[in-house]
Structures are given as C-alpha cells and as structure tokens.
Simulated scan of single mutants.
Amino acid sequence: MAITVPGEWRPLYRGPMHPPAHPPTPIKGNAAGVPFTALPPAAGGAAPLIVTWHMLDAPRSDAAFAAALPMAGVPAWRVHLAMPMCGARMVGGSTDAIVALFQKDPLMSFLNPFVEQATEELPAALESIRAQLPVGDGPIGVLGGSLGGAVALRVLAETETPVFAGAVVNAAIRMRSVVELFPGEYPYDSETEQVVDRLDFVAKADAIRAPLLVVSGEDDHPALRADALDLVAALGQRSELLSIPGLGHPLADDPGIEPAPQLPLAAEVDAGLTAWFRGQLARAA
C-alpha cells in the first residue's frame, strides 16, 4: 500500500505509529450542542487537535467512526463530532427520520442542510472543545468520511478556520454525484443547480487551503471514485491519493451506530490517515 501523488510514487511515512497497548477510553461530551467522542493522544495532556465528521453510511455515528478510524498513533486529540440527527442526536433512537428526509428530497431536505448545519456548527463547537480539552488554539486537522467529507472540504474551502492539513475518505466531493445515487431522476431547477454547483469541490479546488489526503476505495461507487481522482488531479502537488483495493463505500458493518471492532480494510485506511497526519504535524512543528 502506498500514498501516491500525481506523477510520482511516494512510500507511506515510516515514523513510529504503533497504537498504545491499552487504548485510552473514549471521552463522551458535548460542544455547543454538538455531541462528540474524543480520543486523547497516547501520551495524554496537551496536543494539537484533529476534528472529524463521520459518514451517513456505516459507521454512522461519532462513536462508531472513532472506533473505525481511531488514528491511535497520531500525537493529537481526535475529536469526532456527530453529524446532524446522528449519534446522540438521533430522533427516537433510529435513523428513520433521516430516511424520511431523503425520501422527501435527497438534496434540499437531507444532503445540503446536513452539510450546511455541520459546517456552521464548527466555530462554536471548536471554542467549546478548546475550553474542555488541552488542545490549544493553533491550526486544526480536519477529516471527513462520505457526507462528512463535504463538511471537511467546506471548512477547507469556505471558512477562515486555521487548518494545518485535511483528509477525506470516500467523500462527497461533487454533490451532484451523490444525488445520482438516490433512486429516480432528480428534478433540478435553478436553485438546486446552484446548490450542487456550490458543493462541487473539484471546481473549487483552488480554494482548498491546506494539504489534503484523498482516501478512495477502489470499489467505492464509480462516480465517487472518479470524483476523488479528479480532485487529486485538480489539486496537484497540494494533495495525495491513497487508494484502498477491495474497499467499497462503508468502513464498518451495518447498523454502524455503536462502536464495533475495526474491520481489516478500515485498518488500512486508519494506517494511511495516521501516517498522513503524523507527517503533517511534523512539518507544521
């Protein structure tokens, strides 16, 4: 397995990244109304911060995402935020309310408002996290999976939050591609065309303002896979691509709400993310 950059091959970062013998207990909390699962660095104490947003496929909660991608070898706090109506914010303890939203209108009732809300929640959540955990006030890392990837990309392209590096996994890079995964032909109009154009991060690649690792399962949805390759090409030397053979879209088994043992392919993603963020932290030091 290797991380590659367009036009060259580069091996994975080989620094020490072994997980601790006794992984730290996850910390459950709430940051300005956003539930989170935090994982401290192995050494404990003050350290940089990486903020993540989970998938809406499995793992579909902050706690489950933390279990799938713990990045235990990264010397940073990893704070996994719950997406809207997920984790402790589920309505009635199930995903039925989310299903009702995307059946009503996958773009305008589900995809777009979830990405907007999660992005808009970050400044207050970040202030609260810094008041609760010893993470300092320096630039953060950001990570998003699937729809959470669109949140991470919006933070990188559209906000002023200082970021030292980002990563996305099987991400919603072009929202039009995600809409096409839902049954039927979507009835676009002028408003919805503007929405999907605004959430096209290949077109907005020039605005992405930190180094980005793009993790893509080779068996992900073909359109999402193609978008990942297009984003890396658009970013050029500002990005790296990590392809995972055999990985489809999910990173965990259904139902994907509660923490579960890490799957072998998720472990490969985790190793790549660990190498990436360790390397970026070393460069930023």
Rank of each mutant, 00 (worst) to 15 (best):
P40N: 05
P23C: 03
L235H: 05
G272M: 03
Q262K: 05
L181H: 00
T37F: 02
P19I: 12
A66N: 00
L281C: 08
G145V: 11
R10W: 12
A58E: 15
T274L: 07
G45M: 07
V51H: 04
P26L: 01
I208D: 00
I244L: 04
L181Q: 02
A233F: 15
D62N: 14
D254F: 14
P113L: 11
L39H: 02
E158W: 03
A203Q: 09
G236N: 07
F110E: 09
T4P: 05
F182W: 13
Y186P: 02
R14H: 13
A171T: 02
T192C: 00
L224S: 03
F36A: 04
A58R: 09
E121Q: 11
V155S: 08
E127Q: 14
I257H: 08
D220G: 04
V115G: 05
E268K: 01
R225T: 12
D220W: 04
A285P: 14
V168Q: 08
T25E: 11
A271R: 13
Q194D: 14
A72H: 15
G92V: 03
G15V: 08
L153Q: 01
V195F: 07
L143W: 05
Y13L: 15
L231S: 10
N112F: 09
P41E: 12
L49T: 15
L241V: 07
G15T: 13
K204S: 15
P24N: 00
R14I: 14
M55W: 15
E193L: 01
V5H: 05
P187M: 06
A228G: 07
D206K: 13
D189L: 00
A285L: 11
M108C: 08
V178P: 00
V51Y: 01
A88N: 13
D189F: 03
F277Y: 06
A282F: 06
T25M: 10
L147F: 04
R283A: 11
A118F: 05
A46L: 04
M108D: 05
G248I: 07
T159I: 04
S146D: 12
Y188M: 02
P255Q: 13
M83T: 09
L81R: 02
A97L: 08
V196T: 01
L263W: 06
L213T: 10
L12K: 05
N30Q: 14
A88T: 14
T192Q: 00
V195Y: 12
G7P: 06
A43K: 11
A32I: 10
I50W: 02
D200L: 00
P264A: 07
G136R: 11
D220E: 11
P134L: 09
G138S: 02
E158H: 12
E191A: 13
A205N: 13
L12W: 04
F65R: 01
I244A: 08
G248Q: 07
R14W: 06
A21D: 13
L81V: 07
A31C: 09
A150R: 04
Y13A: 15
L281H: 06
A266H: 04
Q262C: 05
D137V: 12
M17P: 00
G45V: 08
A284N: 13
F114V: 15
A266N: 11
L265S: 04
S94Q: 12
A282T: 11
F36W: 10
E193T: 02
V232D: 09
A76V: 14
A171E: 05
G144W: 10
R10S: 13
H18T: 15
D219P: 14
S177E: 10
S94C: 10
V202P: 00
H22I: 14
